[in-house]
């Protein structure tokens, strides 16, 4: 049997959401949904897992805090600080702990710097977004005002097409997948 991809286009996010729920309740697999803006509840309707972006930010933040702390410890206290001790405002230059209050700002900035940038890079990497990448969207109208549902089916498509139209799809396009 030949496989093909169906592209069902919706004009409204609420209709799309209902259709997704309807299809999923009938155990029809939805490959992907493309939308011009984040549709609330769509990730749950599609059964997507929770994203772990926030966790990565926390890890990167801890990394930044450690980096900032070690940097200051090396420069002010242990490494360079030991070979060239400086008396700054009478603060003890041999103790990290007693000098800590004036190190807080930079340790904080390092935390934010690492968390922000590394999370953004992770986000781009996970989404395969980079300068020069080509869009994967099958229809350019999905960044304007159309919502597109991508399905892969084998065999007869009449049933599914009927279901899609009855749940509100305004347009259904298809593409044959060549058999290898």
């Amino acid at each position: 049997m030949s496989k093909k991809t169906l592209y069902a286009i919706f004009d409204d996010e609420e209709v799309l959401l209902k259709s997704v729920l309807e299809l999923r309740s009938k155990d029809i697999e939805i490959l992907e949904v493309y939308s011009p803006f984040p549709v609330h509840g769509l990730d749950h309707a599609l059964g997507l897992k929770e994203t772990r972006m926030a966790i990565t930010a926390f890890i990167y933040g801890c990394l930044g805090l450690t980096f900032g702390g070690l940097l200051i410890y090396y420069i002010m206290i242990s490494g360079v600080g030991k070979s060239w001790p400086m008396n700054i405002g009478g603060k003890p230059n041999f103790s990290f702990y007693q000098n800590m209050p004036s190190f807080v700002p930079i340790m904080f900035e390092c935390t934010v710097l690492f968390a922000g940038h590394l999370m953004a890079l992770t986000y781009l990497f996970r989404n395969r977004l980079y300068p020069g990448a080509k869009t994967k969207s099958p229809d350019p109208r999905t960044t304007d005002d159309k919502f597109l549902m991508e399905l892969e089916i084998e065999g007869s498509d009449l049933e599914i097409k009927k279901l899609l139209t009855s749940t509100g799809a305004s347009e259904i396009n298809e593409k044959k997948i060549e058999n290898e």
Binding site: L42, D43, L48, L129, K134, K136, S137
Partner: peptide
């Protein structure tokens, strides 16, 4: 950057 607006990307 090749943005396509997938559901996972929006999430």
């Amino acid at each position: 950057f090749g943005w396509s607006g997938r559901a996972k990307h929006w999430q």
